[in-house]
Structure formats: C-alpha cells, structure tokens
Computed example of a mutant assay.
Amino acid sequence: MSRPEITKWLSELTEKLINPNKDNRIYWAREVTFDYAQSNRIRVDYMRFEPLNNTISGIEKGDFYCYEIKSSVEDFHSKNGHNLIGDYNYYVMPSEVYRKISAEIPFGVGVYCPEGSSLVSVKRARRMNRKRSVSEMLLMMFRSANRDKLKNNMQGR
C-alpha cells in the first residue's frame, strides 16, 4: 500500500474506533485546527470529547482524546502531526512502524495499531495536563465538524 492509502485506511479505522455505531451522542471531529492566525498553527487529526455527564460541571470535567495518524517511520519523524494537546493522546500507526519507533513515543502517549479490521491498543495513554480550556477545545471541534458537514452537504447536491 502507498503512504496515502495507509493514511486513508488508518483514518477509517480511527473513525470506527471513535464512533463504531455512528452514534450522534459521540462528539468528535477530524482535522481540528488551533491558532488559525498564528505562525504556529496546529492541526489534530482526530479529536473526541467525552463529558462526565450532561450537567455544566460534567461538561467542564470532560476529557478530550486526540489521535495522530502516522503511516510510516518518516511520517513519525516529520515535524508535523505531534499535536498531543488532549487529556489522553494517541498515535495510530501500523504495527511495523510501532516496532521501529516504540522507544521514541513519549511517556503517557498511547498507541493503537491495526489488527484485522479494527484498532487495538498496544500502549495505554495516561492522563496529561491539558493547557487549553474546555471552551476553546469544543469550539475548535465544532468548527471542524461544521466544516465537514457543510462540505458533505455541498457534495450531496
């Protein structure tokens, strides 16, 4: 498989992991961009929000899960796509890539690798101290999800 094909495959598996039943109560977005007008703009491949419950304090205490797709060792070693800004952060990569770079994965960052038609956790993520507010994270997720919704509506015409 070519690198773009591997990225597409890993992306499809990640979407299946995040929301296996296409449940509209699962809050997630892809290509979530932060700091648009800055020179240090970042984009998280996939982001999921899991509120503690639907009360105000439950939303404020919710957790953000970030997933970065890495299709090759070269992709992992590139300066792009190491945007580990969630409460829980994961790389998603082929098993052979993980075997080659496992010692380089930061402590606390988890890893998912494909096994058959799904992803399995090969390294557990640990909670990290997020530096961005719940409101900023949710707004950026909402913006990205809305972009995709509008794009899909335009394609459906």
Rank of each mutant, 00 (worst) to 15 (best):
50 E>Y: 13
14 T>A: 15
24 N>V: 09
104 E>N: 08
138 L>R: 01
74 E>I: 08
111 V>G: 11
9 W>N: 14
4 P>W: 13
115 E>S: 14
141 M>K: 05
137 M>N: 08
94 P>I: 05
86 G>L: 07
137 M>A: 11
19 N>G: 04
58 G>V: 00
5 E>S: 12
28 W>T: 02
65 Y>E: 02
82 H>K: 14
21 N>D: 06
23 D>M: 03
146 N>S: 11
12 E>R: 15
29 A>S: 13
89 N>D: 05
153 N>A: 12
12 E>C: 07
93 M>H: 07
136 E>I: 03
66 C>S: 11
154 M>W: 15
69 I>D: 07
99 R>K: 10
123 K>C: 02
138 L>Q: 03
22 K>V: 02
31 E>S: 15
25 R>I: 02
99 R>P: 00
67 Y>N: 03
73 V>A: 10
52 L>M: 10
154 M>I: 09
133 S>R: 11
7 T>Y: 15
64 F>V: 00
26 I>Y: 13
44 V>Q: 05
29 A>V: 01
82 H>S: 06
125 A>K: 08
118 S>E: 09
69 I>E: 02
80 N>W: 15
86 G>I: 01
57 S>T: 07
38 Q>I: 08
82 H>A: 04
150 L>I: 14
109 V>E: 02
70 K>T: 00
122 V>W: 13
105 I>G: 01
77 H>N: 10
56 I>Y: 13
6 I>F: 10
54 N>C: 04
127 R>F: 10
74 E>A: 14
114 P>R: 08
38 Q>G: 09
97 V>R: 13
78 S>L: 11
77 H>L: 12
110 G>M: 04
130 R>M: 02
123 K>L: 08
30 R>A: 12
148 D>A: 11
24 N>W: 15
152 N>E: 09
148 D>L: 14
131 K>V: 07
119 L>S: 03
108 G>Y: 07
97 V>L: 12
7 T>A: 08
129 N>C: 12
93 M>W: 06
85 I>W: 11
52 L>Y: 09
99 R>V: 02
105 I>T: 00
78 S>I: 05
53 N>I: 00
3 R>C: 05
113 C>K: 10
115 E>G: 04
134 V>S: 05
106 P>R: 05
83 N>E: 07
139 L>M: 12
98 Y>R: 05
81 G>V: 03
115 E>H: 14
2 S>M: 11
40 N>I: 06
136 E>N: 05
48 R>S: 05
16 K>M: 07
33 T>P: 00
153 N>F: 15
89 N>C: 09
111 V>F: 14
35 D>N: 11
104 E>R: 12
36 Y>T: 03
120 V>Y: 14
55 T>C: 06
11 S>Q: 09
70 K>F: 09
24 N>A: 10
16 K>G: 01
78 S>N: 10
94 P>Y: 09
41 R>K: 15
46 Y>S: 01
142 F>C: 11
1 M>E: 03
139 L>Y: 13
156 G>K: 15
37 A>F: 15
125 A>W: 10
21 N>V: 03
130 R>A: 02
103 A>T: 04
66 C>G: 04
9 W>T: 05
26 I>K: 14
57 S>Y: 08
142 F>Q: 06
122 V>G: 06
56 I>L: 15
148 D>N: 09
9 W>E: 07
